[in-house]
């Protein structure tokens, strides 16, 4: 692993891209995975345009707004996403079923607080499929839930002035009917 520079690989499909997180962790990922992160792709393309002749096959891309924990999860998700897509290249329906199955299993291992972290990371990386998936997961988790439950879910605290919240609750009283018990 340490002597990458001695083994230049001309096929772009196996090119590795190195990502460095805000907590200084370094991830080496395949180009196909990194290119799903549009922010990385943009950076990569700009770099390539600037050094057409440099011929280096490894690029280090800093991600100052992403920590290693969510990035590791996003990389796993992305790999699986590409794998499922490749396995069902000619069957969209099968692909959707496999993806749904994977996403259901995936959510079993994700804590609510992590979901917020993942959304912010996916948003920064501009990884659309993941962002859509996490937003859907959040929406279905908070559906018909009380304000207290949802605050806990997001790790939020009320920042209203005294009286403000009561006024809002009164105004939106109609939306509080029939919510689930906590």
């Amino acid at each position: 692993m340490s002597n990458q520079s001695e083994s230049p690989n001309p096929t772009s499909s196996s090119n590795k891209i190195t990502l460095k997180t805000s907590d200084n962790e370094v991830f080496e990922v395949e180009e196909a995975v990194a290119m799903k992160f549009c922010t990385v792709k943009q950076y990569f393309d700009d770099e390539n345009n600037n050094n057409v002749t440099s011929g280096t096959s490894t690029t280090l891309i800093p991600l100052p707004n992403v920590e290693s924990h969510p990035l590791a999860i996003l990389i796993t998700y992305c790999k699986k996403h590409l794998e499922i897509k490749a396995n069902n290249a000619d069957n969209k329906k099968e692909m959707e079923i496999d993806m749904e199955h994977y996403e259901r299993e995936f959510l079993k291992n994700v804590m609510p607080q992590e979901l917020t972290e993942l959304i912010l990371a996916a948003n920064y990386l501009n990884f659309k499929e993941a962002l859509d998936f996490f937003c859907r997961a959040v929406a279905s988790a908070i559906q018909n839930k009380s304000v207290e439950y949802v605050r806990k879910f997001f790790g939020l605290e009320s920042d209203f002035k005294p009286g403000e919240e009561e006024k809002l609750r009164e105004e939106f009283a109609w939306s509080f009917e029939g919510v689930d018990e906590d």
Binding site: S140, V150, F154, S158, F160, L168, F172, S175
Partner: peptide, 15 residues
């Protein structure tokens, strides 16, 4: 992604 009722209720979460 939420229905109107669920969406309206989120306005009480925080500023």
């Amino acid at each position: 992604l939420l229905n109107t009722k669920d969406a309206a209720r989120t306005s009480v979460l925080s500023k």
